[in-house]
Design a protein around this nucleic acid. Structure first.
Lengths: 346, 346
DNA sequence: TTGTATGCGTTATCAC
DNA sequence: GTGATAACGCATACAA
């Protein structure tokens, strides 16, 4: 019984055969006698031989590892996505190596470098809020490196993206608020440099337009940080002015929750005085008071879809199919109506 | 300008020097002329040379990668831990490769195999609820493989563990409930095979004992799944019987939330009729109605601490210090008092 | 059916 | 100061 890592050579020596025979026996190559196979496999099992994936990576120029770059792990949506990624990757024999950027561009760049150094076969990215220039991604795309963007997608050519229909999701959320009798609806918008923020804002505007409600630019407020405190503050300021709004559409649930706290502190009732809808369906959203209506993005599904696409790209690359197509998969959102917006029942 | 991966050999050829010289120049080895260094570094930069970490791993038998095994990514506590792990790993030049077991033992085993195959330098583990036999870990510990357990720690010798003081946390939570006037306190316990569950239950019992409150075994109910639905159901059943309890101490916040919903549905007021305290301080806990009192575990800190310990173990192994010590770092918890348990103010 | 030789990219150890 | 060589563990083209 050997200590530490047993190699193919150890087995070969013990059985007085060549390493290549061992290698072939272990992989059921045709043209190896059953007897040899048996012997090799038995000893491999006995010594609990474990192939060295690093050596295989080097030899075959393939690591069976994909990298995932996300802004933050501690973010319900992203952790859901990771879960989906991990699921598909694992069942296809791939490993997942993870880096969070903490919304920093510098960290994003260095993480990518490290991952490339580690010979990842492909990359899954949701870039940071600081990322406005996409050169570091463009370089990879130009050399046809498999990469799939999700949720936050760049304005670049020849990319493969997975997003949800943010426009439609926002549109329906606001349409719902209007149907519930809201006419003065504030939009707590996300960071301006993210396309998802723009789309959600567009959806908001389109819903107002279709209902012939005039747009009040003062009621579109950017929440760059997206924290509760921020939206708490912003909501307070707006609702202390006149005219007082009767609806809030927040671009994420955390902002919505902060907003709800502010409304409560002002003595306003939800949904009677103000209807509120968020975005993302965080885990807490069903549990707060009142339960928050929101737009679900199905993060698990995004993760799965993005990973499947990435594995496709990796396979295609292997087959030397170099025609790279630009593709964006848009998954549908789902409006989840809870109490925070149900004014018609009250 | 070369396409694809540039190697040390490419640079050597271009400059008509040997690969070893290039290697040394890049790492500022003594005994290389400044001129050569300049030339090499310039070309490396120009061609954006990126060292092949896989080749280095093979050569040096060190991958600068650590594996993390957790039950679920979509679990606020664990995602917080990951965040801490990633932080320390990254700043020490290590990569993090992640596998979730989904609470399955089979998956736990195969994940570990894969990671070992990938030559990880160390392992961070919080094992699955199914894991009652620790042979697969024992094997690793016996060969002195660097491994640190966190949160859920095994009953094995010579392990390095990071936990929080679950006993003390539970003790203080229940003591607080008693101080708030609760005398009939139910305990929604965690899975029996986890030490953390046992500790929390002990803390619960000790607090009762010190207050001379007789223990009612019927009021310790195991919630093996830990879902909201489960604790909702269990709570309903208990509170429909007589005598009706006036306090709930749940071994996690999700269970507490489910319990609170059940209480509300029974027309009971929180905290007036029933005081509730949870465990873990999930993100949603401050936002539900009423805000949930809970015991914070400081997951980020756990992740950081465990990773630091692991890197220590890895370094020690390198130095061939083989005296393995058994060590358990116990981090303190923090009782966070919110409305769900504040009966004295009402 | 099996063995030999070579190379994946890097670096430590000699040698010059 | 620099170069040649071997080795990390494995897979495979080519021999036998």
């Amino acid at each position: 019984m050997k200590l530490g890592q047993v190699t193919i050579v150890d087995i070969a020596k013990e059985l007085n055969i060549s390493p290549s025979t061992v290698s072939r026996a272990l992989k059921d190559y045709p043209g190896i006698s059953d007897e040899t196979k048996e012997k090799v496999k038995a000893l491999a099992a006995k010594w609990s031989y474990r192939p060295n994936a690093v050596a295989m990576s080097l030899r075959r120029s393939k690591s069976f590892t994909i990298g995932v770059i996300i802004p933050e792990v501690v973010h319900f949506f992203f952790s859901t996505v990771i879960s989906g990624v991990e699921e598909i990757a694992f069942s296809n024999g791939y490993n997942v190596i993870l880096c969070q950027t903490n919304e920093s561009l510098a960290r994003e760049k260095s993480s990518i470098e490290t991952m490339l150094s580690n010979q990842i076969d492909g990359l899954l990215v949701s870039f940071s809020k600081e990322t406005v220039d996409f050169e570091h991604f463009k370089k990879l795309i130009d050399i046809n490196f498999p990469i799939v963007f999700f949720d936050r997608v760049p304005d670049l050519e020849n990319t493969v993206n997975v997003t949800v229909n943010d426009f439609q999701g926002a549109f329906e959320a606001v349409k719902h608020l209007i149907a519930q009798g809201c006419t003065k609806i504030v939009h707590l918008a996300g960071p301006k440099n993210l396309d998802i923020s723009k789309q959600r804002q567009k959806g908001y505007m389109e819903a107002l337009k279709q209902a012939n409600i005039p747009l009040n630019q003062d009621w579109i407020i950017e929440c760059p940080k997206g924290t509760q405190e921020e939206s708490f503050q912003i909501t307070k300021e707006i609702f202390e002015k006149s005219p007082v709004p009767d609806g809030v559409f927040a671009s994420n649930d955390i902002a919505a929750a902060g907003s709800m706290m502010a409304l409560k502190s002002l003595g306003l009732k939800i949904p009677e005085n103000v209807g509120v809808v968020g975005f993302s369906d965080w885990q807490f959203s069903a549990m707060i008071d009142p339960p928050l209506s929101t737009v679900s993005q199905h993060g698990f599904n995004i993760g799965q879809t993005a990973t499947k696409l990435l594995l496709d790209l990796i396979d295609k690359k292997k087959e030397a199919i170099t025609t790279r197509e630009h593709r964006t998969i848009v998954l549908e959102t789902e409006l989840i109506i809870r109490q925070s917006s149900q004014r018609k029942k009250f």
